[in-house]
Each structure stands twice: as structure tokens, then as C-alpha cells.
Amino acid sequence: MAVEGNLVEMGALIGAGLACTGMGGAAIGVGHVVGNYLSGALRNPAAAGGQTATMFIGIAFSEALGIFSFLVALLLMYAK
């Protein structure tokens, strides 16, 4: 069976798929942030309210890296 097509394009698509694995890391990071926030909040519920903003900042920082890998995937797929 003869394989036809653009080798560069194949590489780009495989690379895009690989880049998406980076989003798993962001998922773990976000889960870590929220889980630790929650365990801390259950230990000391009185202090939890003041730290919600900090939790969101932490989520934003770790999520941004997942978005970067997603962006790399998109660039590989669509940018020419």
C-alpha cells in the first residue's frame, strides 16, 4: 500500500498531538492547586475566604502553560 501525502504535514500533525500531552500537565497542576486549597480550607475554614483570589491566581498561572501547549498544537495544525 503506497503512502502518499506531505511528510511535513504528517510531522506537524504528529507534533500537534504530542503537544497536546502538555495540557495533561496543566490539568495535574490545576488539580494540585485546587486540592491543596481545599484541604487547607477544610482544616481552617475561617482563613479560606481570604485566599480564594490567591487560588485563582495559582490556577491561572498553571493553566496558562497548558494553554501554551494547546497553542503550539494549533500553530502546528493551522499556521503555515
Partner: peptide, 16 residues
Amino acid sequence: VSHSIRLGGNMMAGHA
């Protein structure tokens, strides 16, 4: 960079 791509990327990703 991260500030802008976080917002733009999230919006783009979700809608896509």
C-alpha cells in the same frame, strides 16, 4: 505574553 495568550487561548480553545 502569558497574560494575553491565557485569555485568547482559553477563548479560542473553548469555542473550537
